[in-house]
Design a protein around this nucleic acid. Structure first.
Lengths: 337, 337
DNA sequence: CTGAAAGCGCTTACAG
DNA sequence: CTGAAAGCGCTTACAG
């Protein structure tokens, strides 16, 4: 690649040293304004492009952030985290960083194999998008690079985490159902599966408690096995009037099942979701759901990782970003006035 | 970052030069097998991580590929290209590369602004995913980096392109409808919008021609304006028995509309799509559609860009990757036997 | 305000 | 089989 314009080329053309060119292009002190301007213009004219690799060598920073998504959260039907990645990648670019996506294979996660982006010093830090297994979290902690968890947390490890406010989101939307006259409300989700599903369940439970509605164990419906694979939903004998689903996709599946059984939503049952992802709009009727504020979460995570790169000891702890309820057509007011 | 282990550290510990360490770790000639093994083990033990930046400086290669997606093909409801990117990113990683995603903003596309990944020498080449405007194509050609188009092509510019076999895909699936007794078949798509939609239309047309079915202009239904925004579908007065949709998403929209009008699919109308994306499985009934072979296309594009990086003058032209028909439940056999 | 020197960590000839 | 030297393109003290 000898045909690339370097600072030295510019320097020679103008009769100064490359140090001066460096200072000028980086807007540093110690170059007269005229010269600065002259250098900048010549650089532009010569088609100068900054060589990131050289800078990286000097300060040991790549200005790349590795965004790690466990394989099981990807696939044709699961675009949520990819959208998340897109948002992160956008925010990173605004901040002068780049996001390198790494899909963490199940075997690497189990085998505690660190991604090559780490082994090749390709990145300055990690954003981990989606719950990873405990041993892998431990493994990541042995690594000196900063990491921020997104959309999940792990209490033992005290890693910084940016999560959606699962608890209050579920609490709010359950309150909304109750305000609409519902009392027999089921929760759909494997409450032993992920922290998100658990916290959403607890928010739902809090709402019940506050309204002195007794928690009915038969109204906790399992939606997936412990590997995250969806299983056939089993409805209780005595049916509720409303369902709080732990995510929009499960709400979509539930509604399909109810329709198959000859029921109508929201006329026979009200259903709410969580996430506001593609399933919320694609479902007929549109889902009333809790929006995950992807943009705000991305912004926060990027600020965190940036600060941690500059200061290794910086801690942020667990930060919850509140989402709003998006009202669509899957809830019916059954209050008898 | 002084606390990183370098080749020199390993060399000193073992009493050889860093050249020998470099040779050993890269499995080059000129080091005895014993020494090689010893060096590798020590490297492992000392937690040595290769410094990509240093290698980049030497040979001017970043081992990053910029994957550019125009903004208008992204968003919550459009995960197709993100899935594509994921597949590309996976294949790149297998080949020792990394894919850096760049969402091309509309204003940058119109303003002919090159992405920063180019200006900062972050990437060795581009994969452009999704049709970009002509002037931007021209702009890209002024750049010395190799580029491969994916899922679209541009005839004037003779840029290498990996596309799905739109023509024969649509031809095959239209043939399939005809074999099922359909003769009044509409095509849904703005045939002036993208080359894909146009080619799929022509495949549909070829099938009609071969079966001596006259093309009815009223059976060409526009689905989007020239900015790609979906518009309300207008059905012809005399309805067809089947619809060939230019993509699954439009098939989804069409089926929703037909259902609203009180019709049933496939009982009243057969509908087929193209892409086999999330809309194909989410639609009720599941869509019979032409699968885009994302994996194979990614593989091909990565091979192309890799070859072009090594040999600037390498040309591949336009390569079509054939997809298969995925049979689901949106087509009814109406042949009277 | 300007620049010579040194160094970031590796690799590529080349010499022994 | 092994290594000294030079260089990739930049930046950071430091000297003037």
């Amino acid at each position: 690649m000898k045909n690339n314009v370097t600072m030295r080329d510019i320097a020679e053309k103008i009769g100064v040293s490359s140090v001066t060119v460096s200072k000028a292009l980086n807007d540093k002190e110690g170059v007269s304004d005229e010269l600065k301007e002259k250098i900048k213009q010549l650089a532009e004219k010569m088609g100068y492009r900054f060589n990131t690799a050289a800078r990286s060598m000097k300060d040991g920073l790549s200005f790349n952030i590795g965004v790690i998504i466990p394989e099981r959260f990807t696939g044709l039907a699961q675009s949520f985290y990819l959208n998340f990645y897109q948002s992160i990648s956008r925010v990173l670019e605004e901040q002068g960083y780049y996001g390198i996506l790494h899909i963490l294979r199940a075997e690497d996660e189990d085998g505690l194999k660190l991604p090559r982006i780490y082994l090749e010093q390709k990145v300055d830090g990690f954003i981990i998008l989606g719950q990873i297994k405990k041993p892998y979290i431990k493994k990541l902690q042995t690594v000196e690079l900063p990491a921020v968890f997104m959309d999940f947390y792990d209490d033992e490890s005290h890693m910084d985490a940016v999560i959606t406010d699962n608890f209050y989101g579920a609490y709010d939307i359950t309150n909304y159902l109750i305000r609409n006259g519902h009392e027999k409300i089921a929760y759909v989700g494997n409450i032993y599966s992920t922290s998100s599903i658990q916290d959403r369940f607890l928010g739902y439970y809090k709402s019940l408690l506050e309204h002195h509605i007794k928690l009915n164990e038969k109204y906790i419906l399992n939606d997936r096995d412990n590997h995250g694979k969806y299983i056939e939903l089993e409805l209780p004998e005595e049916l509720p009037t409303a369902f709080v689903c732990n995510c929009d996709q499960v709400a979509h599946i539930l509604i399909a099942k109810l329709k198959e059984m000859g029921y109508s939503v929201p006329d026979d049952f009200s259903v709410v979701g969580f996430d506001n992802d593609i399933y919320a709009t694609i479902t007929e009727p549109g889902l009333t759901t809790v929006e995950v504020n992807i943009e705000e979460m991305s912004r926060t995570a990027v600020v965190f990782i940036h600060e941690k790169i500059r200061d290794k000891d910086k801690k942020h702890g667990r930060v919850q970003i509140k989402g709003n309820i998006i009202y669509r057509d899957s809830v019916k007011n059954i209050k008898k006035d």
